[in-house]
Amino acid sequence: MTFKFNRFLKDREAGEKWLSIWWFLILVIIALAIIGAINMFFNANIDTRAYEASLLYDKTFDCVSNNYNFMNFGGENFDLITACGLNSYLFTSEEGLKYYIEVYVKDEDGNIIGDKASVGRESYKGDCEVLLGDEKIIAKNFPFCFQKSEVVNFVEPGESKIKTRQIEILIASNQKGGKV
C-alpha cells in the first residue's frame, strides 16, 4: 500500500470546508442564543409591585392614623377612597381594578372596632390568604400582597388617659403596567 500525497491533500481541504460549515453553524447558534437572551432580558417586566404596595400601605396608614376617630372606625360613612385621597377609577371601576386595601382597627384587648374598611378588587383577598399562608406558594399572576400591623397611641379630647389601637392593613397590588 502506497501513501498517495495528492489524495491526502484533497481530503484535508474537504475537512477544512466541513470545519468552516461547523464553525458558521456555531456562530448562528451563538447569535440565536444572544438574540434570545437579549429579547428575554429587555422584554421582561420591571416588577415594582412591592415598592408600590409599601407606598400604598404608608399612605393608608397615615390617613387612618392621622385623620380618623378610631371609636367609630369602619362605619358605613367611612370611605377609604375619599379619606385617603385615592383615585376612584383604580379602586371602583371594573376596568381599572388593580389594588385591594383592607383595614382593621383593634382595641387594647384585640377586639375589632366597628367593621373592616376595604376597597378595590375583593378577590385579591383570597389570593393574599394563599400567598401569605404557611405554604408560601409562588404564583405568577397573583397580586403582590403586603400585610402589616402597627400600634398607635392617642389621647381623646377632654381625657388624659393614653389609649392604644392596633391598625392592621392588608395591601394587594397587581399593577404591572403595559404596552399601549
Partner: peptide, 25 residues
C-alpha cells in the same frame, strides 16, 4: 388624572408604555 395613568411614547406612531398611579392628585 381621571384614570390615574402615565403614558410615555418615544416613537411616532407607536403606542408606548402605560402605568397607573393611585393618588387622586
Amino acid at each position: 388624572s381621571d384614570k390615574g395613568q402615565v403614558a410615555v411614547s418615544l416613537s411616532e406612531g407607536k403606542g408606548g408604555y402605560e402605568m397607573s398611579y393611585f393618588n387622586n392628585y
